[in-house]
């Protein structure tokens, strides 16, 4: 109970801090909206091949939801933690009877949730504006609940991958490039940012379905489009849980080793 209260108090504190940075949040929201808008426009304007299962309505729904899912599964851990190692502010967290990484993770979660203040109205308004071009007749409560669960699991696996990369900050002064390779470029491609995973050629789609990236963005939206069977959805959850457990283990191992080399510089 103490631990739950402590986590709740920390989350609340991050909410309060983020509210003081409204301008920054707005800029972030614009960043999140810009690329999906461009991609949606691009996909709607090109001639689709016969093998492409996505219609214009699917693309519209897909890129309408991308900013929201992108935001909800985002993780700032990879930027915050290495900085805390470098400037020694990690020491402050290590001295408390509270899991140090939880603080950074809660900061990220608070940031993602508050960002919805900007993103949700835009998404709802945009959705209303193009409602005649969207196909939502298949939507039901079960699909929405599946989507919610997929977002939570997708956020978890992204947090754990980000966390694992960020912990390399115990050894490397800057993990930005490592993050760009493992969690940026590959994620944008295989996660469904540039091209929806469902429209990949069969053999690439198989690879994407085995890797964790799809589950951080594409999978929750694929659920809403109604193109996945119950079995495919459950299989997706199983893959996400597998990767989450694997990266949780990796994080734990790196954490233990990293603490031994932590030099607590700065003061």
């Amino acid at each position: 109970m103490t631990s739950f209260n402590a986590h709740l108090a920390t989350l609340r504190a991050h909410f309060k801090i983020i509210f003081t940075y409204r301008g920054m949040m707005l800029i972030q929201a614009v960043r999140l909206l810009l690329l999906p808008l461009v991609l949606a426009a691009a996909w709607l304007s090109i001639q689709k091949t016969a093998e492409n299962p996505y219609s214009d309505a699917d693309y519209l729904l897909y890129y309408l939801l991308v900013p929201v899912i992108l935001n909800l599964t985002d993780s700032r851990l990879v930027f915050r933690f290495p900085m805390a190692v470098r400037d020694g502010s990690l020491s402050r967290e290590l001295l408390k009877p509270f899991p140090p990484l939880s603080g950074y993770a809660l900061e990220s979660i608070a940031n993602n949730l508050i960002q919805l203040i900007y993103l949700l109205p835009f998404t709802l308004l945009a959705g209303y504006a193009i409602s005649d071009r969207l196909q939502l007749g298949h939507l039901n409560l079960q699909l929405l609940l599946y989507m919610l669960l997929a977002i939570v699991l997708g956020g978890l696996v992204r947090m754990l991958i980000s966390g694992s990369i960020s912990l390399v900050g115990f050894w490397l002064e800057d993990v930005t490039t490592l993050n760009l390779i493992l969690n940026g470029g590959i994620w944008a491609l295989l996660g469904g940012m540039i091209v929806p995973v469902a429209t990949f050629p069969q053999h690439i789609r198989c690879i994407a379905e085995m890797l964790p990236y799809r589950y951080m963005l594409s999978f929750p939206i694929e659920i809403v489009t109604g193109r996945l069977s119950q079995a495919q959805i459950l299989q997706g959850f199983a893959v996400t849980i597998f990767w989450s457990l694997l990266f949780a283990l990796i994080m734990r191992l790196i954490w233990k080793r990293g603490l031994k080399v932590y030099a607590a510089y700065g003061g």
Binding site: N5, A6, T10, K16, R92, G267
Partner: peptide, 29 residues
């Protein structure tokens, strides 16, 4: 234990001290 470093801070920079006290209260139960 507690470690106070004159050049480092435990207080949350963007919040009033009373908020940090509240968080500490929860963390230390």
């Amino acid at each position: 234990i507690s470690l106070v470093m004159g050049q480092k801070q435990n207080l949350w920079w963007d919040l009033p001290p009373v908020e940090t006290f509240e968080i500490h209260r929860r963390i230390y139960g």
